[in-house]
């Protein structure tokens, strides 16, 4: 009897602790969403709790006046092209490095791995000068190239292991039938490493989509801003128009939350890859 009670108390305690911690995450997020529907006055007098009425006026204002539609378009464009480039370049490179023996193979692989411990932002000075000299400052091309380059190390690192583990017989069989190196890569290898490709895609997608630093340094015209930089300029512009600020924040987090909830397993796998084996 006492044991059962002890048992129950333990479960209640565990749930209570987890629930309190969950609340520190859910509640601030909900407050942001709730406050986006309130007027400035209501935010001031009743900052927490549900809004007295739901008006989408601030959303329309943020979307149109504060250019959130433009920021969204830019984020989507830059992120998607960069992720696709990273996937293509890193899977080809990892395939070659993992499956072919040639002089310099190890050095090249090692040099790619080196990038895992070099935070690229520390090389921002020459990178900035390089883009300036190539006339790529404030262009989509410039930032896409930088993102593509910065995604290679991690992606090659993950894909390399997967390509290494593919049994030799498959490749030999294809080679016997006269398939070229590229055909083997495209028709046989890629489908086999699909799980790793999705991991790599999500990891790169999140780090590029959320990045503030590079677009802040490289993009100077507002019509090229991505969401993180856009929101910074938005907060600078509408400092005290709180309901509008909350609406802007909501616009930028809700799509990510929805995407994360739909694909939470893939997200968690993708973002913790490398640390968990």
């Amino acid at each position: 009897m006492t044991q059962l009670r002890k048992f129950k108390i333990k479960w209640i305690l565990i749930h209570l602790l987890l629930f309190i911690y969950a609340l520190t995450i859910i509640y601030p997020t909900l407050i942001v969403i709730f406050n986006s529907f309130k007027s400035n006055q209501e935010i001031f007098s009743k900052p927490y709790g549900l809004p007295s009425s739901f008006s989408f006026q601030h959303y329309i204002q943020a979307w149109q006046e504060a250019n959130f539609s433009v920021y969204f378009k830019n984020s989507i464009l830059i992120t998607f092209i960069s992720v696709i480039l990273v996937l293509v370049l890193s899977s080809m490179a990892a395939y070659i490095l993992a499956r072919f023996k040639f002089r310099g193979n190890f050095i090249i692989f090692f040099t790619f791995l080196l990038g895992l411990m070099l935070p690229l932002r520390l090389a921002i000075v020459p990178l900035y000068l390089l883009l300036r000299d190539l006339n790529l400052l404030d262009t989509y091309t410039g930032i896409i190239l930088v993102y593509t380059a910065s995604g290679l190390s991690f992606s090659i690192f993950i894909l390399y292991t997967f390509f290494k583990n593919i049994p030799n017989e498959l490749i030999e069989a294809a080679r016997m039938e006269g398939a070229s190196v590229f055909q083997i890569y495209y028709k046989i290898m890629l489908p086999l490493v699909r799980p790793a490709l999705s991991t790599v895609a999500i990891f790169n997608f999140m780090s590029i989509w959320n990045d503030f630093f590079f677009p802040y340094i490289f993009l100077s015209s507002e019509d090229k801003y991505t969401i993180p930089v856009g929101i910074a300029s938005f907060f600078g512009e509408y400092t005290t128009d709180w309901s509008l600020l909350f609406a802007g924040l909501t616009i930028s987090i809700v799509p990510v939350i929805v995407l994360f909830l739909i694909m939470s397993k893939q997200f968690i796998d993708g973002l913790t890859a490398g640390a968990i084996k």
């Binding site: 020459p126 000068l129 910065s150």
Partner: peptide
């Protein structure tokens, strides 16, 4: 097939660090 990755990595990662 290895070349594009090597070039992009060399220009936008290795060069900036060495140049730093």
């Amino acid at each position: 097939m290895l070349l594009p990755a090597v070039i992009i990595y060399g220009v936008f990662i290795l060069y900036p660090f060495l140049s730093s």
